[in-house]
């Protein structure tokens, strides 16, 4: 990296720059990692106790994790989160993929404007979306129901699916479809045997985005859910606002692990997709 002809000034700058970047990356990653050891704190504090710093085994405990497992409310919230995110993802992925197929056709009229509208749920501030939904959904009886939150989350998740699937479809060779038709396959068969395998990575990563959007969403839940539909983020929100206990850190740690797994999946899919499309 550093050229041979670099003078002392350049060498100094080179290493200074590396250190600066290291600090910025630390700024990015440290806040996420810091909750992990703290969640094993034996004391109900939010900071490292002297015992933890000297690696005293007694200073660590699993008590906050036991707290989660023994707390009906957390378990119930976890179930709610999964159920809501699952159905929201199914709706968002199906509708989003079909729309992306249409948007990627060269004949699509007003492509830019329609794309802009379909992506707007990602851009409009959540508080506005949630407030609007609250008024409308309460009029049609969808507040304090699972269906209401699922619909809301599906709407908020669709832009991600549209973006990722259209991205996979750029460079999609339309002549493959004609070839399949030519060889006697009908449209349905062509879709499932030719198009879908090729756009699958985009669909899955779009779906994962939609899933995490729903799984992490709290503003719409604040407005639309009743006590029965509380999700994990809603529960954390209450925990942070009312009385913050290290149980929150244990939940946070579990969520970090889930995001690491999701990220790994996305990364693998991206590589596979690039390989399939011949980009690498």
């Amino acid at each position: 990296m550093l050229p041979i002809y670099a003078g002392p000034l350049e060498t100094t700058w080179y290493y200074t720059f590396r250190v600066i970047c290291g600090l910025i990356l630390l700024f990015l990653i440290a806040p996420i990692l810091v909750v992990i050891p703290l969640s094993f704190n034996a004391e109900p504090y939010f900071s490292f106790t002297p015992g933890m710093l000297s690696f005293d085994a007694d200073a660590f405990s699993m008590r906050w994790y036991e707290d989660i497992i023994n707390n009906k409310q957390w378990i119930h919230s976890a179930k709610n989160s999964v159920i809501i995110a699952f159905f929201a993802t199914i709706i968002a992925t199906t509708l989003g993929t079909v729309a992306a197929l249409g948007l990627s056709r060269p004949e699509m009229p007003y492509r830019g404007a329609i794309m802009g509208l379909l992506i707007s749920p990602m851009i409009v501030p959540l508080i506005i979306s949630a407030a609007g939904m609250y008024f409308f959904y309460s009029e049609v009886g969808l507040t304090q129901t699972y269906a209401g939150i699922i619909l809301a989350h599906a709407a908020l998740g669709t832009p991600f699916v549209v973006i990722t699937v259209t991205a996979t479809l750029t460079g999609f060779d339309q002549s493959l479809i004609r070839a399949a038709n030519n060889l006697g396959a009908n449209d349905t068969y062509t879709f499932f045997k030719v198009t879908m395998p090729l756009i699958m990575p985009g669909m899955i990563s779009g779906g994962l985005f939609a899933f995490i959007t729903s799984f992490d969403e709290v503003v719409a839940v604040l407005f639309l859910s009743g006590f029965e539909q509380r999700t994990i983020p809603r529960q954390m929100w209450a925990g942070i606002r009312e009385q913050i206990s290290p149980t929150i850190l244990a939940v946070a740690t579990i969520l970090v692990i889930i995001s690491v797994m999701l990220l790994a999946t996305i990364e693998l899919l991206r590589r596979r997709s690039d390989r399939l499309r011949g980009l690498v």
């Binding site: 990356l25 990015l28 990653i29 440290a30 806040p31 996420i32 810091v34 909750v35 703290l38 939010f46 900071s47 995490i212 799984f215 992490d216 709290v218 983020p233 954390m236 929100w237 942070i240 913050i244 929150i248 850190l249 946070a252 969520l255 970090v256 995001s259 690491v260 999701l262 990220l263 996305i266 990364e267």
Partner: peptide, 21 residues
């Protein structure tokens, strides 16, 4: 990955972390 991990981590987790820090 260090850039993307925060992107994938729950907003509430990151906010909690900053309270802790």
């Amino acid at each position: 990955i260090m850039v993307l991990l925060p992107f994938w981590t729950s907003l509430l987790v990151r906010t909690t972390s900053w309270i802790v820090l």
